Simulated assay, not measured.
Amino acid sequence: MLCQVAARLRRRVRAADTLARLGGDEFAVLVERLADPGSAQVTAQRVIREIDRPIVVPVVADDEDPVPDADATATVRVTASIGIVFSRDDPDADAPLRQADAACHCDGSRESSWRYQALAST
């Protein structure tokens, strides 16, 4: 499932953007050289629309069905929390990532959403 999510993310960001899996189910997209802050919101909305689509995954063996049908699949849904940060040449390269992480977890919702945190330029 994570591979499918990563593929969907790649389809919704620009070729010049950087996509990274941070661990577990967390991904980061570094989007540089945006014309205006609204462009980040457009990117976030594209990503959310893509992630919100159902994902079909193969069914694996479990206690209830130790030998599932070879063609068995299940449809799952995942949600995305996106934190957007605007930063210019911060000497602490990790600061924008920490701020984006804080922005995307601040509402505690299980629904897909995005939030943005404006950082002061240094």
Rank of each mutant, 00 (worst) to 15 (best):
M1F: 08
L2E: 01
C3R: 08
Q4Y: 04
Q4V: 05
A6D: 09
A7N: 15
L9A: 11
R10Y: 07
R11G: 04
R11E: 08
V13W: 04
V13S: 01
D17Y: 10
D17T: 13
L19K: 13
A20M: 05
G24K: 11
D25N: 10
D25E: 14
E26A: 05
L30F: 06
L30M: 06
V31I: 08
R33E: 07
L34N: 06
L34K: 06
L34P: 05
A35H: 09
D36A: 11
G38M: 01
Q41V: 14
V42L: 12
Q45G: 07
E50G: 15
I55M: 07
V56R: 15
V57K: 07
P58N: 12
A61Y: 00
A61D: 01
D63I: 13
E64V: 11
E64F: 08
P66A: 09
V67H: 03
P68I: 00
A70I: 05
D71C: 09
A74L: 02
T75M: 07
R77V: 06
R77G: 10
R77Y: 08
T79R: 13
A80H: 09
S81A: 13
I82A: 03
I84F: 05
V85S: 06
F86V: 13
S87I: 01
S87M: 03
S87F: 02
R88F: 00
D89H: 12
D92V: 04
D92R: 14
A93V: 09
A95F: 07
A95Q: 12
A95C: 12
R98S: 10
Q99V: 13
A102H: 15
C104N: 14
C106T: 15
D107A: 14
S109M: 05
S109Q: 15
E111Y: 07
S113W: 05
S113Q: 15
S113A: 11
Y116T: 11
L119S: 11
L119V: 01
T122Y: 03
